Amino acid sequence: MSIVIQEGNLSFSFDFEAIKFDDTPYYRNHFIKIKNGISAVDILAVDNNTGYLIEIKDYTYQDTENLKLNDLVEAIVNKVISTLSAILPMKNNSNNTAEKNIAHSFSSANEIKVFLHLELSPPTSKLEQSTWSFQKIQMKLKNRLKPIDAHPKIVSMKYPNHFSWIVTKI
């Protein structure tokens, strides 16, 4: 079984259960309407009793807007918390079997891992994102997400950090 999920110019290939969470009918048609400011991670995946929350940020586009590091961290924390709060009702209330199954698998997982897949703008760029350090982002996320995942991972195509899926540029 190979599941391919496309996000922008990146393609993610999984050999285990995964969905593009922020595009699911349950999230789009029901959960997002609860409150302004709710957002979700891009991919929800489950493998061997480990649940993965994967957020994808690709700042290699020409029209990328400048962003402060603290704003990125705040957005990711919000997405992780919102996604986690959507999984239980999705498991119980979704009309889509695939959504219900992965929500059930994720709810039964023994461990949750948070991944930020980050493609930075070139160092010659005038964007603040071109100067970001993976270690600094990881430290800030670790401080904020410690009750959920004490060791969130920041990865990219250049620095894959041994994740369990394949990422290619389209």
Rank of each mutant, 00 (worst) to 15 (best):
V114N: 10
Y26P: 05
I43C: 09
A40R: 03
I76Y: 10
D71W: 08
I102E: 02
K91V: 04
K35H: 11
A45W: 03
L67G: 00
I43S: 12
D71E: 13
E65D: 08
S105M: 11
A98L: 11
G51R: 05
F106Y: 12
N70D: 14
L53M: 10
L84R: 04
S94N: 07
A109H: 05
N48L: 10
I43R: 06
R28P: 00
E111I: 02
I56W: 05
R28E: 07
G37C: 04
P25Y: 04
N29T: 09
E65P: 00
R28I: 04
S85P: 05
A103Q: 07
Q62A: 10
H104V: 03
N110I: 01
D42W: 01
A45D: 06
N95S: 15
H104L: 10
A40H: 06
T64A: 14
A109L: 00
A98D: 14
N49P: 03
I34L: 13
L88Q: 08
D42Y: 01
N101L: 09
Y26S: 03
P89F: 15
A75W: 00
S85G: 03
N29M: 09
K33G: 13
V80L: 01
K113V: 09
N92G: 08
S82R: 04
A103C: 06
E74C: 08
A86F: 07
V46E: 08
D63K: 13
A45F: 04
N93A: 12
N110R: 09
I112H: 02
R28T: 06
T60C: 05
N93W: 15
